[in-house]
């Protein structure tokens, strides 16, 4: 499915989608959206490139192996951020009790751990969507190994 119009349109639109996805992830604690919505938007832009060009161009942006590593890394970062609360003698995913600085209400760098957790969630969701896409596309050739 190689098409000139689709390729040029996706090349023009992709940077804007990615910036919007990052915006939604980073403003998750201030406005509607958050890690899940922003990660889905960002992951969709990566899949769009791989689908409108070809798999080699898509793999140059983010390959299947990189997406798998990022997916596990996002989940690991979430758990580690939660365990910081346990390390400082509070509950799992504790925010203020664990000593995270809360900052000014309404500012970008506020709400303590929520900011970090949302960023890790965004990475996790975006790479999960890319991994889903690669699993569908490469399904037959790579059915042997488990992802």
């Amino acid at each position: 499915m190689e098409d000139q119009i689709v390729r040029i349109t996706s090349r023009l639109v992709t940077p804007f989608i990615q910036v919007y996805g990052i915006y939604v992830i980073l403003h998750g604690h201030l406005s509607p959206g958050g890690g899940f919505s922003g990660g889905a938007i960002f992951g969709a832009s990566l899949v769009l490139v791989a689908l409108s060009f070809n798999l080699e161009v898509g793999a140059k942006q983010i390959s299947h192996a990189t997406a798998s590593v990022l997916e596990s890394g996002g989940a690991l970062g979430f758990v580690v951020t939660g365990l910081v609360g346990v390390a400082f003698g509070a509950n799992f995913l504790a925010n203020r009790a664990a000593g995270f600085p809360l900052g000014e209400a309404g500012e970008l760098f506020s709400a303590g751990a929520i900011f970090i957790i949302t960023a890790f969630l965004g990475v996790k969701v975006a790479s999960t969507i890319v991994t889903l896409f690669y699993n569908i596309i490469e399904g037959e050739e790579k059915s042997g190994d488990a992802h």
């Binding site: 509607p32 992951g43 969709a44 769009l48 689908l51 569908i136 596309i137």
Partner: peptide
Amino acid sequence: SPDVAMVEAALGTGVTTLLLIAAISK
């Protein structure tokens, strides 16, 4: 519910369509 609307627009319209088109191309 703007939160759900955002997820619906990203997942229901974007990702689902992309994955279904990938499935059709296979």
